[in-house]
Design a protein around this nucleic acid. Structure first.
Lengths: 308, 308
DNA sequence: CTGCCTGTATAAACTTTTTTTATATGTACT
DNA sequence: AGTACATATAAAAAAAGTTTATACAGGCAG
């Protein structure tokens, strides 16, 4: 049973060659650009096509044209390589300690509730305060590369050494529907819903988005068409406009400031899944600030939750 | 001269092994999980460390621990692989029928007004729609690296070749004060205000923030303490809470959904400065979509502006 | 339609990288 | 200190990728 199946049908090197061919407009030209021979390129492309099982180029036509699949591959490959190329410089940066400037990452779903109290607290500890919104995934790496000193966001399950964490709260994932939709009570209802209505989802770049995806896969829910957003407001707005359904959390919904007239939330059928929001900082670099920030955040949205 | 310099110090296979080691908690365990031998894993990790020039694991300690650099690598590698794994299913989908993915960057200040109409328009042209909020500066580079297909944001002054632009609108920068503050009519009043009250500003990472900074320097305004944010809501919220004053634009204020009771806007003393919002895309890759999107955006917030 | 030019595919030999078997070295725990 | 468990190293085997040489196909001129 020693199936030699790599989990992936390509590697970065193959994708680089593929993109070279796209950019150079031909295999011979790409070969020259890359400093390898033309057959090597030819082989790499053939290999990529064989392993993905998709025709990437249309050989029937002379100035080598991308197929539809090929264009998609170009899009994705290009973005993947752009990501990959950012990694080495980041790794190098990591190798490089009262604070004048405190830079804080704030996950979008806490933005509305926490911005002002957080600023008020931090104003006592720093001349300059910089609060940046966005996705936790981005914040986490910026923390490690020292572009942020602290962030409030979805806690990573895995314990990373060199960081300290202070829990703010936990909240369940909930189903978000437009007013007219009826409540799915069982997993089967949810599967049915997903077949008939588009799924409005959080970007897979966000930690929350990834967890929702994973959970849906576990439940066996498969979405038809899908729309993807990285801001809680956008997700809620789409659902409110009747475009489809979403999975979100109470805080994300509160952030978007929609009323119960436009949106309804229901418990998610199946097992209960929650997300944990925490304050994360580099270990012991900021003294008691991280713990205090967690306290501030906790009290900041405590009233909010009571309202819902 | 045959320098075998790959442009990247790792490939996906190496990263998979690295992540297995992280997850399994050891090289031997990872080897078993992957169905290869322990030395193969050992070698792959050593190779990864040698090529990236970074120590990923701390061998001095028994249950093999990640270094700080290692944690970052784990995060990035994990997200890179998650991206990579999404590609093959996508390719298959294309073969099955019409599937296109359109990825759009949307500057925060247009988020509220444009998300829904934009999605509605794009739904007719693609199976999947991905709308990512954030800063224009980030979007511009993602457009060039093909991680976005289109963005709506503050237009760069410099003409980058290979891009097409469609103007959506122009809007002036305005002064944002809390209700209790009196209106500064001359530049001198503004300079005085900046001395007595903290300046709430947009992050210098955002194009808007940079332009505001530049303008203030030209006017000779110097701020005492400063708070910095990258979301329009946060800036407005701070001003509304009486923490200080800000410079913003009508759309940014609308985005934050504050009422006239909490905030007042006044024309900026001194020369009039405006910002231009545009749709930007790679030249001719999307046919008429960019122009249409500009039209959709234009009509989307036209009513908004009339309200103010 | 035919033959030439340009550019891609294929074949066999060769080089490099990766994996394996075997064994040494190291860390933690008693 | 000794033992158990885990990682590192060495040399051989296997696999992958690259090169040279050559065959094949599409586009274009006559």
């Amino acid at each position: 049973m020693k199936q030699k199946s790599r989990s992936l049908p390509f590697d970065l090197h193959g994708l680089e060659i593929f993109l070279s061919v796209c950019d150079a407009g031909g295999m011979a030209a790409a070969a020259q650009e890359l400093g390898i021979t033309q057959p090597a390129v030819s082989f790499a492309i053939a290999d990529l096509e064989r392993r993905t099982g998709a025709a990437l180029f249309d050989r029937k036509v002379r100035p080598l044209a991308l197929t539809l699949t090929g264009s998609l591959m170009r899009q994705r490959a290009s973005s993947l390589l752009a990501d990959a190329r950012q990694i080495p410089p980041m790794l190098r940066q990591v190798k490089l300690g009262k604070v004048a400037l405190i830079r804080v990452g704030l996950v979008d779903s806490l933005s509305r509730a926490a911005t002002v109290p957080l600023s008020n607290y931090l104003a006592e500890h720093a001349e300059e305060v910089s609060i940046l919104s966005g996705l936790t995934a981005a914040h986490a790496s910026e923390l490690l590369t020292r572009r942020l000193d602290l962030f409030l966001g979805v806690d990573d399950l895995e314990e990373t050494s060199g960081l300290e964490r202070w829990e703010i709260m936990r909240e369940p994932y909930v189903l978000l529907l437009s007013r007219s939709e009826r409540r799915p009570r069982a997993v089967e209802d949810l599967i049915e819903l997903a077949k008939s209505r588009p799924f409005i989802r959080f970007s897979a770049r966000s930690r929350t988005g990834l967890e929702i995806e994973r959970h849906l896969r576990r439940l066996g829910v498969e979405a038809a068409q899908s729309f993807e957003y990285d801001s809680p407001f956008a997700v809620a707005a789409m659902v409110a406009s009747g475009r489809g359904f979403a999975i979100s959390t109470p805080l994300c919904v509160a952030e978007a400031k929609f009323t119960n007239k436009e949106l309804v939330t229901w418990p998610l059928p199946g097992p209960i899944v929650t997300r944990k929001l925490s304050v994360v900082a580099r270990f012991r670099e900021l003294g008691k600030i991280p713990r205090d920030v967690a306290e501030v955040a906790k009290s900041a949205f405590a009233p909010d939750l009571l309202k819902n």
